[in-house]
């Protein structure tokens, strides 16, 4: 059963997602060569706490940090370590917050210093894929319409889609129904209705779609070592244009 949120609940989701969006804006000022993933994690966690919310990744499924920081060939779920970012790296920051029992979630991939043209393009394609998917996120359409739009745009641009991880419904829990795969066929999957809140999150690779998990049990990397980018927002389905709550 996919939860439908009422006006009061949506207001709470707007509030928590505004904090997540503000945290992304806040951390951008710190992102440069030399800062460590661990330091980024601390800055984001402190910011979220200062806004009266709590990081919702921490301890979820025993995940040990407030943020997922995935560098270069790491796709998602990178555990922040005391490793300094270097000029030319790309880094995906994925984090969320919970406020009054309601969850928010967003991810962005950032370039550190000057990156290669292909890395820059990858970051742009991940963002474009999100917006292609967003265009299908309307009442009356289906999850597969989002999935197809994301996949088509990625593949048209010579990138591949990570298949074994997906977006998800979000609300009272970080992970709710439905799953939002980034690949699929039009017209398939759950029907979208007004009041649903979804985390749409394309994960795009420069090489093949296959991924592997590090020995830490969390960090997901591309199997061929090529770069990966991630872009995510929490979205509200309405009768008209979808609303990005974590903008």
């Amino acid at each position: 059963m996919i939860p439908i949120k009422n006006a009061k609940e949506i207001a709470k989701m707007r509030a928590v997602n505004a904090i997540v969006a503000a945290a992304h804006r806040h951390i951008q000022g710190y992102l440069s060569a030399g800062i460590t993933a661990k330091e980024i994690d601390t800055i984001v966690e402190d910011f979220i706490l200062s806004q009266g919310a709590k990081p919702n990744f921490k301890n979820l499924y025993r995940y040990p940090a407030a943020t997922c920081i995935s560098i270069n060939d790491a796709v998602i779920h990178g555990i922040p370590k005391a490793v300094a970012l270097k000029d030319g790296d790309i880094v995906s920051l994925d984090f969320g917050a919970v406020l009054d029992g309601w969850h928010g979630d967003a991810a962005r991939t950032y370039a550190i210093g000057s990156v290669s043209n292909s890395a820059q393009r990858l970051i742009e394609v991940a963002k474009e894929c999100f917006y292609q998917g967003l265009a299908e996120a309307r009442a009356g359409r289906r999850v597969g319409d989002i999935s197809y739009a994301v996949q088509a745009h990625a593949e048209k641009n010579g990138c591949s889609i990570v298949r074994s991880y997906s977006g998800h419904g979000i609300g009272r829990r970080l992970h709710e129904e439905p799953a939002i795969p980034n690949y699929g066929a039009k017209g398939q999957g759950a029907l979208l209705k007004r009041g649903m809140t979804l985390a749409i999150e394309p994960m795009i690779n420069l090489g093949g779609f296959e991924v592997k998990v590090d020995a830490d049990g969390w960090t997901v990397r591309t199997q061929d070592g090529f770069l990966s980018a991630h872009y995510e927002n929490t979205v509200l389905i309405t009768d008209g244009e979808p609303e990005i709550l974590s903008r």
Binding site: I76, H175, M203
Partner: peptide
């Protein structure tokens, strides 16, 4: 945070 899903196929 992405969700691990089974892969179709």
């Amino acid at each position: 945070m992405s969700l691990r899903i089974p892969q179709i196929g």
